[in-house]
Simulated assay, not measured.
Amino acid sequence: MKGYVYYSREESSRNRAFIDDLMMEAAKISIDLYLLVEDEQPDADAAFILFRDRHPEKAASFEQNGFHLVNRAEVNRIANDKMKTFELATLLGVPTVPTKKVHSVNEVNSYPCVLKTVDGHGGNEVSLCMSKTDAKTFFSRFEGRSLIFQPFIESGATDVRVFMLGQEVLGAVKRTGNGSFKSNYTLGGSIEEYPLSTRQQKDVITIARALKSDYIGIDFLLLPNGNWLLNEIEDPVGARSLYKTHDFSVAERLMVYMKRKLASS
């Protein structure tokens, strides 16, 4: 069986260790896995493409050419649009952070608030705005981009990322910010394994089932009273925090899942 893992050129360098791990685990179960970068084209006989980029149009083009994508292009489209993520959660009845699109600073009607680009990731295009002046700065910085507004919700800079493989919970990681309202591990936050309640497991399985996703991360703000609110869906999702807090190979689980799925299709 032949497959590809697709990355942008920049991300292929940053994620070289994970790519090598994927290739090693693939070889153990007789999958020939190759790296595909930028505009390189896969061979027509490839069984699948593990798509590791935030580029719904590129994903869709591979599907239109007959390739089996992990995740589907539709998953990539929804996960990389925070407004579509919010709409999906609302439709499914999953508790979520109230979210609305805003086109000007005059539509921001309460402070403090959180402003985000609709397609940003990694916490780099997010701002806690305490005043209209802060909001104006954000709008100026991201002029021409689609923006969303969320009320600031006190969570102690704590959230939970749940890693899903199909409809199975691979693991969950509690992330706490370090001197910032952002909890991202890559921005210096602390992490620990987090046990999900029955209700929380139901929420994430509901989302994964609706998306028909293969491998995603689902982020929830963790509230002081123990409840949670969906904040984002990540595709592609980075596994650094999962490797740090759990004692299994994500690459191994992913490759075994792929082989089983393709064998049964």
Rank of each mutant, 00 (worst) to 15 (best):
M1W: 02
K2T: 07
G3V: 01
Y7I: 01
Y7A: 03
R14H: 02
A17N: 02
I19M: 01
D21A: 00
M23N: 00
K28P: 09
I29C: 07
I29T: 06
L33V: 00
L35Y: 06
L36S: 01
V37Q: 12
E38P: 14
D39I: 02
D39L: 13
D39M: 11
E40C: 04
Q41V: 05
I49C: 09
L50H: 14
L50G: 01
R52P: 05
H55D: 15
P56D: 07
K58L: 14
A60F: 10
S61Y: 05
S61P: 13
E63Q: 11
Q64C: 08
G66L: 13
F67G: 04
H68E: 08
V70K: 12
A73I: 04
A79S: 07
K82Q: 11
K84W: 00
F86L: 04
A89W: 09
L92S: 08
P95E: 09
T96P: 11
V97L: 13
K100I: 02
K100C: 07
K101T: 10
K101Q: 14
V102F: 11
N106L: 08
E107K: 11
Y111N: 04
V114H: 12
L115N: 03
K116Y: 04
T117I: 06
T117L: 14
T117E: 13
G120R: 12
G122A: 03
S131C: 04
D134W: 10
T137A: 11
R141E: 06
I148K: 08
I148V: 10
F149A: 00
F152K: 08
E154Q: 15
S155F: 03
S155V: 04
R161D: 06
L165M: 14
G171H: 08
K174I: 06
T176N: 07
T176K: 15
G179Q: 06
F181Q: 09
S183A: 09
T186S: 15
E192G: 09
Y194E: 05
Q201Y: 11
I207P: 12
A210K: 11
Y215R: 06
L222V: 03
N227A: 08
N227G: 13
N231I: 03
E234M: 07
P236M: 03
A239M: 11
R240K: 15
R240E: 00
Y243I: 01
A251T: 00
E252F: 06
R253M: 07
L254N: 06
L254M: 13
S264F: 14
